[in-house]
């Protein structure tokens, strides 16, 4: 999906289009984001966790 780095590379599971609209950050379950495909109009849920953390004060030698 273009325009939002949190969803880079997400594609429609039916037609593989990347022309998606995010419908809801919390989809049919807490762990999912809901998208609608602009090409085939499928609505689908995508598991969101990619290990991204909110802004975190820097510590030089923190384990990643």
């Amino acid at each position: 999906m273009s325009g939002d780095r949190d969803f880079a590379g997400v594609r429609c599971p039916h037609c593989a289009s990347e022309a998606l609209t995010m419908v809801s950050l919390f989809g049919s379950s807490v762990s999912e984001v809901m998208f609608r495909c602009g090409q085939c109009r499928t609505v689908f849920n995508w598991v969101k966790w990619r290990g991204t953390l909110p802004p975190t004060p820097t510590v030089p030698d923190r384990p990643s």
């Binding site: 950050l25 807490v30 966790w49 953390l53 909110p54």
Partner: peptide, 17 residues
Amino acid sequence: IRKIGEESYFHLKYCQG
């Protein structure tokens, strides 16, 4: 704590929207 952070990330994203 890390797991809490991964979830809080999307709570903050909601606020930012």
